[in-house]
Structure formats: structure tokens, C-alpha cells
């Protein structure tokens, strides 16, 4: 091979390589433009997603914080109210306990005994009461044939507890038991006085 033909071949290869490189560069440039264009949309989507996720997370956190502080505040209010209701109860019970055993009280005992014997279906009963009410109860028992006052006393604010003579049936009609039964209604009443509305 002559020198000139060798040079020609080399030039040809160089030209081809140059063209290849240039076309590769063009290709790479257009590819990179394409990638950049695509990544803008992808980035925008990604950005929107991150913002949306962030908003969701913020909403969730807000709900958590507001929810738990609402509950905490409500619980404190409930405890304060219960405390106040308890104090009203204690004072009321104290007043009932220290009240006079006058004529009205004797009528109350009579109606309690009346109610109790009706519930048990017999007046053949043993009546229990506290030491303070013994005299009033004893004087009322004349109206209930067959009834007798027990020598034992019970611990209560007032009222009576009766038992059938065979001991099979008992009925608690003490003031304590009545208050216990009515407590939910009384609590509602007291709470409404404190301005709590359902």
C-alpha cells in the first residue's frame, strides 16, 4: 500500500470517527434535553406529591393535637364537675342526717314502711333501723300488724330495712338506698344547676 492511500484511509477513518463523535454528541445533547424535559414534569409531579403528603401529614397532626387537647380539657371539666357534685352530696347528706325527727319525719317513716310491706307482700316482718330513728319507728309500727322492731341497729342516715320473718326476703328502704338509686338523676339535676347542659 502506498503512503497516499494509507493517508486517505486514515483520513476517511478520522472523518467517520469525527462524524460518529459529532452525531453521538448531538444524540447525547438531544437525549439530555429530553431527560431534562421529562424530569421537569417528574419533578413537578414529585413536588406536588410531596406538598400533598405534607398537607395530609399536617392535617393529621392538627387533628391529633386538637383531638387530644379537647379530650384533656373535657376530662378536667368532668373531674371538676364531679368534685363539685360530690361536695353538694356530702353536704346534703349531712343536713339530712342532722335533721329533726319531728312529725314530718314520722310520716316519712310510715310511708317507707308502707311501701316496704307492700313490696314484700306481708306485714309479718322484722324492721331494722338506726339508733336515732328507733323511737319514731317503734311508734309507727302499731299500724303494721305482725311487725316487730329488731334489737339490732343498722348503720344508715335514716329510714328502714325490713326482712320477712323466715329471713328469705329483704327490702332496703333506707334513705341511703333511696339516694343511691336516685343518684344518677340527682347528679344530672346538680350538674344542671352548675350550668351543664346535655
Amino acid at each position: 500500500m502506498t503512503n497516499s492511500s494509507l493517508e486517505k484511509t486514515i483520513d476517511k477513518i478520522l472523518d467517520q470517527t469525527e462524524q460518529d463523535i459529532l452525531s453521538n454528541l448531538d444524540g447525547a445533547l438531544s437525549d439530555s434535553h429530553q431527560i431534562l424535559d421529562n424530569s421537569v414534569t417528574k419533578l413537578e409531579d414529585e413536588y406536588d406529591k410531596i406538598v400533598a403528603d405534607g398537607r395530609k401529614e399536617a392535617d393529621k397532626l392538627e387533628k391529633q393535637i386538637v383531638g387530644s387537647s379537647d379530650i384533656e380539657a373535657r376530662n378536667k371539666q368532668l373531674l371538676a364537675l364531679e368534685d363539685a357534685v360530690d361536695r353538694v352530696f356530702t353536704q346534703a347528706l349531712e343536713q339530712i342526717s342532722n335533721s329533726d325527727r319531728n312529725g314530718d319525719y314520722a310520716n316519712l317513716i310510715k310511708s317507707l314502711l308502707d311501701e316496704s310491706t307492700k313490696v314484700l307482700g306481708t306485714s309479718e316482718v322484722i324492721v331494722f333501723t338506726n339508733s336515732k330513728d328507733r323511737d319514731v319507728v317503734q311508734s309507727t309500727l302499731g299500724n303494721f300488724a305482725g311487725s316487730e322492731l329488731s334489737s339490732e341497729t343498722i348503720d344508715c342516715i335514716g329510714g328502714v330495712k325490713i326482712q320477712s320473718k323466715d329471713g328469705a326476703m329483704k327490702f332496703d328502704n333506707t334513705i341511703d338506698a333511696k339516694i343511691d338509686r336516685l343518684k344518677p338523676l340527682i347528679r344530672k339535676e346538680i350538674a344542671s344547676k352548675f350550668g351543664v347542659k346535655e
Partner: peptide
Amino acid sequence: MTTEGGVQYSKI
């Protein structure tokens, strides 16, 4: 809500 109490039975 009832204001009346109930009878207690002890024969089980």
C-alpha cells in the same frame, strides 16, 4: 330509671 328498690332473696 326506677325510684323503687327491689326485693332481695336469699334462698339460692
